[in-house]
Simulated scan of single mutants.
Amino acid sequence: MAGKDPTNDHGSPAAWTTVAIMLIGSTVSGLALIWDSPTIFFSGLGVVVAGGIVGKVMQMMGLGKQPA
């Protein structure tokens, strides 16, 4: 096939990076609930917020999904 298939879109580097960082942060926060550690819990939430910021910065750098 000549060109990209629009139905076969697997995201962008910005999206994959954002999801990976947020997954790590939510995993840390979830484990902190089991360990009964508020400090680690809120640190994990901070990682989730940082993931959103990193994703937005990467999108602004041109690594996000390009408009059609």
Rank of each mutant, 00 (worst) to 15 (best):
A68N: 12
A20V: 13
K56G: 09
T39A: 14
G44Q: 06
D9Q: 10
M61F: 08
M61N: 06
M61R: 04
P38I: 04
A32T: 01
V19S: 12
G3V: 09
I21F: 00
S29H: 03
G3H: 14
A32K: 02
T17K: 03
M61Y: 05
S43G: 09
G46P: 02
M1C: 07
A32E: 00
P13D: 04
Q66A: 15
Q59F: 03
L31N: 01
G30Y: 02
V49T: 14
I34C: 02
D5A: 04
L45F: 06
T18G: 15
H10E: 11
S12Y: 10
T18W: 08
A2I: 10
T27H: 09
A15H: 08
L23W: 11
D5N: 14
D9C: 01
A14K: 04
A14V: 01
G30P: 03
K65D: 02
G11C: 10
W35H: 03
L31S: 05
V19E: 12
D36T: 06
A2Q: 13
G25I: 08
K56S: 09
K56N: 06
P38N: 08
V48F: 07
P6M: 00
T7V: 02
Q66R: 04
G51E: 10
I53V: 14
I40C: 00
T39Y: 05
G62F: 02
W16G: 13
L31G: 11
L31F: 13
K65G: 10
A15K: 07
P38K: 05
T18D: 07
G51I: 10
V57W: 07
V57P: 01
V28D: 05
I53T: 10
A20F: 15
F42C: 04
F41E: 07
T27N: 12
D5Q: 01
A14R: 08
T17N: 10
I53G: 04
M22W: 01
M61E: 06
V49H: 02
D36E: 12
N8A: 12
P13Y: 00
K4E: 07
T27A: 14
G11W: 11
P38R: 01
M58E: 05
G51T: 07
A50H: 08
A32I: 03
D9F: 15
G55F: 03
P13V: 02
P6A: 09
G3D: 09
G55A: 12
A15W: 08
I40L: 15
M60K: 14
M60T: 06
I34V: 15
T17M: 15
G46M: 01
T18A: 14
G44I: 08
G55W: 13
A2T: 09
M22H: 03
F41G: 07
P6N: 07
G30R: 01
G52P: 12
S12Q: 11
A14Q: 05
L31M: 11
N8S: 10
S37R: 04
L23R: 04
V48H: 01
L31I: 14
W35Y: 11
I34D: 02
A32S: 15
L45Y: 01
